[in-house]
Design a protein around this nucleic acid. Structure first.
Lengths: 264, 264
DNA sequence: GGATTGGAGG
DNA sequence: CCTCCAATCC
């Protein structure tokens, strides 16, 4: 029996409102580390008790009131943690930790970018591109084994969306966003673990809008959530899972959890 | 076996939010007529279907958006209905019907009156007193058998509140409100059916604040809901019930239903 | 304490 | 569609 390390990323869209499905997921899947985005809660109000009750004693938070907010919850010890504020705007969009074996896990919530894909008329779109650019500058300088996970809010490939043509002008799949994400990816030769295990042209989605009347039947999904590894780390990855079923749970998030398993 | 008529009054604090307990109550108690206050819904959005499903085919509404709103729901036919606007301010605080036997049922939601019992500093308190005065002018001219029910938002007697002394300066039990209500009562020799069947000094409450940590243990109730009858109608009343138990139901209103049963 | 709306943000 | 908040009222 070989030991493995299971790391999950999940945009939970309010950890307080959805604490029951988080508990259910942890009971069923039992990952070692859970990276959450959009916790939407200040650190003092984070519902830590249910995690501790399930054996997740290491809880690191970077929350804020109302919006954004990220967290790393672990049942293995964590020896160092950081919170970056790349845009120096105090938005809680990053938390990073180092594991005892030296692996860094960086958990990021990239800005959604508003509705109109135009930097001039929609400042939020500009902020999103700027965020990815600043991440790129950071990534270029990295020299340690790293796993970069989170809600990147960009679906880069044609097979990452339900209709490439119909989404070309929809924020999350526009060429300018994809180019920015490609730049980030190239800046440290990141390995896209989702596609490493489910190569193009396989359909692979992690998000389905709440607005669809029947999200399952229409299946208008997008792959907005990602796990990227530096080459050394990618070599130890042995599998990658997208838990589509969670989109059907009671009071679901619009994102589903994704997981990579690593050999130790 | 003698036929009777059961009439209920209940401030429901949002009929949409509490439709389940209304259905439960109708199934358990099966009154003939239900008078609701604080329905908090425009007529077009009133949830009529659940009432029809239980045999209540006669649904008369005077609702408005967000606040106030009254309704009379009946499984016996209703031959006439009115909506008074005593203060000509378009607040939905009254609906009245006539039964085939000639009895009029008038359902009223008296303004709460704000926090400070002073006409000068708190206009809502003035509006409340004005409302009762205008009802009094209307009541003086009445000459038909009538049952007047609703949330009067005044607890007149010492035994209508958990502490007469501590509530003397609290809106709902101040001497000026009690005097106004006494004036209304005298204006047509109304019989207070609650006290007719549960005379002073018996404890009789119909409302307990949501704010108490343990409303049942502290029992800081008030009798804000009333059923008043003209003398001829009062003679046919055979019982009066306050359903305190409803305050413990799931998602309760802060008011409980009260019922009078009449011989036919 | 509990309900309603309206707006922001997704 | 769904969440959170701020304001308003009871």
């Amino acid at each position: 029996m070989t030991d493995t390390l299971k790391i999950v990323s999940w945009n939970i869209n309010s950890v307080r409102f959805r604490i029951e499905i988080v508990e259910q997921f942890l009971r069923e899947v039992a990952p070692d580390i859970l990276c959450l985005q959009e916790t939407k809660v200040i650190d003092g109000d984070f519902p830590a008790a249910p995690f501790r009750a399930l054996g997740y004693d290491h809880i690191l938070l970077h929350g804020q009131k109302m919006h954004h907010g990220v967290a790393i919850i672990s049942r293995v010890p964590l020896v160092e943690d950081d919170r970056f504020d790349w845009q120096a705007n105090r938005e809680a969009r990053h938390i990073g930790v180092r594991l005892p074996n030296g692996l860094r896990v960086e958990n990021v919530y990239v800005p959604a970018g508003g509705d109109v894909p135009d930097r001039e008329v929609n400042p939020k779109f500009g902020q999103k591109l700027d965020f990815v650019e600043r991440m790129t500058r950071w990534s270029e300088g990295l020299s340690v084994p790293t796993l970069l996970v989170g809600d990147f809010n960009i679906a880069p490939l044609e097979c990452d969306v339900w209709s490439h043509k119909q989404l070309l002008d929809v924020v999350s799949h526009t060429p300018i966003e994809v180019a920015a994400l490609d730049g980030l990816k190239a800046s440290n030769d990141w390995v896209d673990l989702g596609r490493h295990f489910h190569p193009d042209p396989a359909r692979l989605f992690t998000w389905w809008s709440y607005r669809a009347k029947d999200w399952l039947a229409s299946d208008r999904g997008r792959r907005l959530d990602h796990m990227w590894a530096t080459a050394d780390v990618a070599k130890t990855a042995i599998g990658h899972t997208v838990f589509e079923g969670c989109r059907s749970w009671l009071k679901p998030s619009d994102h589903v959890p994704i997981m990579t398993e690593f050999a130790l």
